[in-house]
Computed example of a mutant assay.
Amino acid sequence: MRDFVEDLTKRNIKHSLSASFHDPTDSVGNLLFNGLAMVAEFESDFIRARTREGR
């Protein structure tokens, strides 16, 4: 996700969540994107674990 966000930032593409725009280069934007990345990674691992249990 970090690579994806860096690519968007290099191309001056704005990121929005709801009605707010967040700059991933400032501290609040960085915290937001890292938090979202952690949730996405957790969910991905959880899906894999549930899939293994179902086999």
Results as ranks from 00 to 15, higher is better:
35 G>L: 15
4 F>W: 09
34 N>C: 13
34 N>L: 15
12 N>G: 02
9 T>I: 01
54 G>P: 01
43 E>T: 12
49 A>D: 08
13 I>T: 01
54 G>K: 09
28 V>A: 09
37 A>V: 04
47 I>V: 10
20 S>M: 11
35 G>T: 15
2 R>Q: 07
13 I>C: 04
54 G>D: 10
3 D>T: 07
16 S>F: 10
15 H>T: 14
29 G>K: 02
3 D>P: 06
6 E>S: 04
14 K>A: 12
6 E>V: 03
11 R>L: 06
15 H>Y: 00
8 L>P: 00
14 K>D: 13
51 T>R: 09
18 S>C: 12
21 F>A: 07
48 R>V: 11
19 A>M: 08
30 N>W: 02
43 E>I: 11
28 V>K: 14
13 I>D: 03
7 D>A: 02
54 G>C: 09
13 I>R: 00
32 L>R: 06
48 R>K: 09
46 F>V: 09
29 G>N: 12
1 M>P: 05
46 F>R: 07
2 R>W: 11
53 E>V: 02
22 H>I: 11
40 A>D: 12
22 H>W: 15
42 F>C: 10
10 K>V: 00
45 D>E: 14
43 E>M: 14
11 R>A: 02
23 D>M: 05
4 F>D: 14
30 N>T: 14
14 K>M: 10
12 N>F: 12
18 S>K: 03
37 A>K: 01
36 L>C: 07
28 V>E: 15
54 G>E: 15
34 N>S: 12
10 K>H: 02
36 L>F: 15
16 S>A: 07
17 L>A: 07
46 F>Y: 08
34 N>T: 12
31 L>P: 08
55 R>D: 03
44 S>V: 14
49 A>Q: 05
41 E>I: 04
36 L>H: 06
5 V>R: 02
45 D>Q: 10
43 E>W: 03
4 F>Y: 11
25 T>R: 06
2 R>A: 07
36 L>Q: 11
42 F>K: 02
41 E>V: 03
18 S>P: 00
53 E>C: 07
55 R>N: 12
9 T>G: 03
17 L>C: 06
33 F>Y: 04
49 A>I: 05
33 F>P: 04
42 F>N: 13
4 F>E: 14
7 D>E: 08
54 G>N: 10
37 A>G: 13
23 D>A: 05
43 E>Y: 05
8 L>I: 01
39 V>I: 10
31 L>D: 15
17 L>D: 04
19 A>E: 12
5 V>A: 13
25 T>Q: 13
16 S>E: 15
55 R>V: 00
6 E>M: 07
18 S>H: 01
4 F>A: 06
24 P>S: 05
12 N>D: 09
41 E>P: 08
26 D>E: 14
38 M>E: 15
